[in-house]
C-alpha cells in the first residue's frame, strides 16, 4: 500500500514542478518528489514479516528474516543529499528575491 502511495507522491511532486510558477513551491515539490522516492526505496527493501536489520541478543540466530538493509543505507545518503540541494535552492531563492522582488517567475521583469 505504501509502495503505491510513494509512486503517487512522486507523480504529485513532478506535477508540482511542472505546473507551479513560484520558486518556493517548486522547491517544495522537489522535496515531495524526494520523500516519495525515499519511501519507494524503503518499500522495495521491505520483506513481509521481517524485523529491523539490527543484531541484538534475541534475533541473531538466523531464524528471523531481516528486511533488506542496503536500501536503508541508500536512503540515508539520499536524505542528506536532498537537504543539501534544498538548502542551495533556498539560498538561490533568496538571491532571486533580492534581485527581482518576487518569488513568482511570471512577474519577474528582465528575466528570460
Amino acid at each position: 500500500m505504501l509502495l503505491y502511495a510513494a509512486i503517487i507522491l512522486m507523480m504529485l511532486g513532478l506535477y508540482g514542478i511542472l505546473t507551479q510558477r513560484n520558486i518556493i513551491k517548486i522547491i517544495i515539490s522537489l522535496n515531495i518528489l524526494e520523500i516519495g522516492l525515499n519511501i519507494f526505496i524503503i518499500s522495495i527493501g521491505f520483506v513481509n514479516g521481517g524485523v529491523a536489520p539490527i543484531f541484538t541478543g534475541q534475533n541473531n540466530l538466523g531464524s528471523i528474516g531481516f528486511v533488506d538493509p542496503l536500501p536503508q543505507a541508500l536512503v540515508l545518503t539520499a536524505i542528506v543529499i536532498g537537504v543539501g540541494t534544498t538548502a542551495l535552492g533556498l539560498a538561490l531563492a533568496k538571491k532571486i528575491y533580492a534581485k527581482y522582488g518576487t518569488f513568482e517567475i511570471d512577474d519577474m521583469k528582465g528575466a528570460e
Binding site: L2, A5, I24, I27, I28, N31, I35, N38, I39, I42, S43, G45, F46, G50, V51, A52, P53, I54, V67, Q72, V75, L76, I79, V80, G82, V83, T86, A87, L90, A93, K94
Partner: peptide, 30 residues
C-alpha cells in the same frame, strides 16, 4: 511509514533532518 517498514535509523534521520532542519530552512528563508 519508515517505522512501519522496519527502518528505524532512516526514521530518526528523516525526523531530525527532513522534518526539522528543512522546515527551519524554509521558515528562515521566508
Amino acid at each position: 511509514s519508515f517505522i512501519i517498514m522496519q527502518a528505524p535509523d532512516v526514521a530518526v534521520t528523516e525526523a531530525v533532518i527532513g522534518s526539522g532542519l528543512v522546515t527551519s530552512l524554509f521558515v528562515f528563508t521566508l
